[in-house]
């Protein structure tokens, strides 16, 4: 698109940006206001009094640190597993001549679209038998129900866009199938792995329902259900919730900022490379 037309789009972009960014700004600014200013009418858009009290309370009076570490553990494990399992599956779907491959590919998409709310009770019953409730590994495995189909669906196009010649050259040069995948195909698919990895991580990081139902031990709680305890029947500490939310958002925002470049090539490359 010529720059002249692009300039005309800026107002629209700004409007959209305001729509998306304002809640984030409101969250951050609320977390920095004292409790009395939080409820003031009319509201203050820029805090009159700046305070870090909510952040201090968060670490001294709640187990935010523990929740954060728990979340990090579960999300890292589930993302790692999803990338390994999903990539291998996607590679097979992209490359091998298998009977019913297309049908299987569509089933993967269906599995991804299946609502989690319908899965959680059967999963709970199953996990109880297997002793996987109240376990970070169990929760990570539960997250694979949506993370693996997602990785498979996206990485399949990525692998399909890597020229077959490269792999065949590696096979002739003395690599095994897995060796060729590791040495030659995966390095081409790094942008895709980063993009899908981030999304898989994000889904898990924000996930509430599975975390609430599969984990009942307070010391094992993850962030989303853990933060709900800041809401009580008598009092909701908005400053505290906003401080926790800000800190929970921060790592993701940072990650997106750092890998933005990959993300754009990544999501674009799968479908229309070259």
């Amino acid at each position: 698109m010529p720059p002249r037309n692009a300039a005309r789009l800026y107002p629209l972009v700004l409007l959209l940006l305001a729509f998306v960014a304002f809640p984030l700004y409101w969250m951050a600014s609320t977390s920095l206001k004292p409790q009395t200013e939080v409820f003031r009418v009319p509201p203050t858009f820029v805090p009159e009094t700046w305070t870090l009290r909510h952040y201090v309370e968060l670490f001294w009076l709640t187990d935010f640190g523990l929740l954060f570490v728990n979340s990090l553990k579960v999300c890292l494990v589930s993302t790692g597993l999803a990338l390994v399992v999903g990539s291998l599956g996607a590679y097979a779907l992209a490359r091998f001549r298998v009977r019913g491959k297309e049908a299987y590919g569509r089933l993967v998409l269906l599995a991804y679209m299946f609502p989690g709310a319908l899965l959680v009770i059967p999963l709970l019953l199953l996990f109880r038998q297997l002793g996987l409730t109240n376990s970070h590994l169990g929760l990570s495995l539960a997250y694979l129900t949506f993370a693996v189909p997602f990785v498979m669906w996206v990485m399949r196009d990525f692998f399909a866009s890597v020229p077959v010649d490269l792999e065949e050259a590696a096979l002739i040069d003395g690599a095994s199938r897995l060796g060729a995948l590791w040495d030659v195909v995966l390095p081409q698919a790094v942008p895709g792995l980063i993009a899908t990895g981030i999304f898989a991580f994000l889904f898990a990081w924000n996930e509430y329902l599975f975390a609430l139902i599969l984990i009942s031990d307070e010391s094992l709680r993850t962030l989303p259900p853990g933060m709900m305890r800041f809401v009580s029947t008598t009092d909701t500490n908005w400053g505290l919730i906003m401080a926790a939310s800000t800190l929970a958002t921060l790592p993701m925002a940072l990650a997106f900022g750092l890998i933005q470049r990959y993300l754009v090539t990544g999501l674009g490359a799968g479908g229309v490379k070259g």
């Binding site: 065949e168 050259a169 590696a170 040069d173 095994s176």
Partner: peptide, 30 residues
Amino acid sequence: LEPRDRNIAMVFQSYALYPHMTVRQNLEYG
């Protein structure tokens, strides 16, 4: 036999050079 057990070498129409490796790494991969 698998390709790697045949002691053959092949030049492809697209060259199929490994794009993420230097020329030296390409040459010595095998």
